[in-house]
Structure formats: C-alpha cells, structure tokens
C-alpha cells in the first residue's frame, strides 16, 4: 500500500469495521429463482430469468455480460429499486421481494448503497452535501450527517474537495464522491452498476483501489460490469447471458511466475 492510502486508513478507524469475508458464512444476499419479466406475448422480455445467487457477507461478486443481458436489472432487483416478477430474495434474514414501496425505501436507506455509471450526483449540491444527503434522509442530525460526510470524503481522498460542486470535479473524483455517498449510512451491501464505465484508466484505478480497500474492511460488494479488469478484482465472477447465469467462477490464485512470461521476462 502506498502512502496516501495508509493515511486515510487512519480515518477508517472511526467507522465500524466489519469482519472480513470468510467462506462458508451465512449469505447476506440470497436469491431463489429470481425473475423479472417485461411485456407480454411476443414482446415478453425475460430480463432476469430464474436466477439463483448467494453473496456471502464480505464477498465481492462481479456480474459480467454483454449489454442487455439483464445484469443491471438484476442489480436493481437486489437493491430494491425494482420488484421481481417471481422468485424469492433475501437480504440477511429478511425477505425483501414482497416488501411495500415504503419498506423498500427504508431498506435502501439503511442497508444498501448504490453506485451508478453516471454518478448521479445532485449537481447543485457540493460534494459534502451530496454525501450528507442520505444521512439526512435517514433522520440523522445535520451535525452527525456533516461529521460522517467529512470522514467519508477523507476516506475517499477528497477532503480538500468537500466544498466543490460536482461540475468542478473530475470523473474519478465524482465517482468517489458517489461512493462516499453510498457509504453514508453504513450499508451492509454496496451495489455498483458499471462504476467505471465513464472513467479513463487512471480514474478507474482510483475507484478500484477504493473498492479494494472497502472490500478488505469487510464490505459486501456486487459490481455489474462489462469490463474484465473490473470483474477480475472480485472474489467471484458470474457471467450472464439473456437474463440467466451461464458461468460462475471463483477468482483466487494465479501464479506470479506466469506474469513474467506475459511480458517476455520469463527465463
């Protein structure tokens, strides 16, 4: 780890640190035959087609697939932005596929954080105010919300940009503000939809590093992407085609020696 990161790690101590992911733990997200269909008859689209998924607490799962394969819809279902047509969905020990819109809103407020490709920051609010917003929505006092927002901005390395409007920030900085916002209410699950889709490779690295650090602290992450390099940073990769899972693979191991081969340094 390099120097700036270690610095911000110091700030992390204030936030509650969760146990890192251990295999075999009770899953945080559990989906059984989860389906989302649009339209009727010939126009029927099976955006998500009887998907089974378990995400353990502290695990980072990447969902990959070509555009239109239903990966975003899956993410929206997991976060309660959309309701499934069929199937069961559990977040922790709570079944959420049947919740009322109000309960879903509460769930999104407390348990889920979203990160979008287009950042979706509020243009007229400063970075700090954007990060405060979910905390205020959750009924925290302005003072608490402000303190939390400051800590989070420091964590994402943007403490000096707190008073900037989004339009004065670079893409990578905006996305980091959005990530800080997603973390404002200490969610159990962060859902990211093509989080680096609008970023160049340097900014992508910034965001990936941030995810990696959050992940190391035990945050559960589901990332939807079509970019292999993002997917490769996850613990597990799920491939989707036409609304269904076609492949699932754990991504652990790999040999360092082989890397040298790749650049012509092998002996």
């Amino acid at each position: 780890m390099n120097a700036p990161m270690n610095q911000s790690d110091g700030e992390l101590e204030r936030a509650p640190v969760r146990e890192p992911y251990r295999a075999g733990e009770e899953p945080l997200v559990r989906a059984r035959r989860l389906s989302k269909r649009y339209g009727k008859g010939d126009g029927l689209v099976r955006a998500v087609d009887e998907v089974d998924l378990e995400v353990a607490a502290g695990e980072a799962v990447a969902v990959m697939g070509p555009s239109g394969c239903g990966k975003s819809t899956l993410l929206h279902l997991l976060g309660g932005l959309d309701r499934p047509s069929d199937g069961e969905l559990w977040l922790g020990d709570r079944r959420i596929d049947q919740l009322s819109e109000r309960k879903l809103a509460e769930m999104r407020r407390h348990d889920v954080g979203f990160v979008f490709q287009a950042f979706h920051l509020m243009d007229e609010l400063t970075a700090q105010e954007n990060v405060e917003l979910p905390a205020l929505l959750a009924g925290r006092s302005p003072r608490q919300a402000r303190r939390r927002a400051r800590a989070l901005l420091e964590e994402v390395g943007l403490a000096d940009r707190a008073r900037h409007l989004p339009c004065a920030l670079s893409g990578g900085q905006r996305q980091r503000v959005a990530i800080a916002r997603a973390l404002a209410n200490e969610p159990r699950l962060v859902l990211a939809d093509e989080p680096t889709g609008n970023l160049d490779s340097t900014a992508t690295l910034e965001v990936l590093r941030l995810f990696e650090r959050l992940h190391a602290r035990g945050l559960t992450l589901v990332i939807v992407t079509h970019d292999e390099r993002i997917a490769a940073t996850a613990d597990r990769l799920v491939s989707m085609r036409d609304g269904a899972f076609v492949d699932e693979m754990p991504l652990v191991g790999g040999t360092r020696g082989r890397l040298a081969d790749l650049v012509g340094l092998g002996g």
């Binding site: 990936l208 292999e228 997917a231 490769a232 990769l237 991504l251 040999t255 360092r256 890397l259 790749l262």
Partner: peptide, 8 residues
C-alpha cells in the same frame, strides 16, 4: 481472468 486479477 486469474492472471488479470493478479496483474490488476
């Protein structure tokens, strides 16, 4: 992919 993960 595993290689990519390591390099990444």
């Amino acid at each position: 992919l595993r290689l990519l993960r390591d390099v990444q």
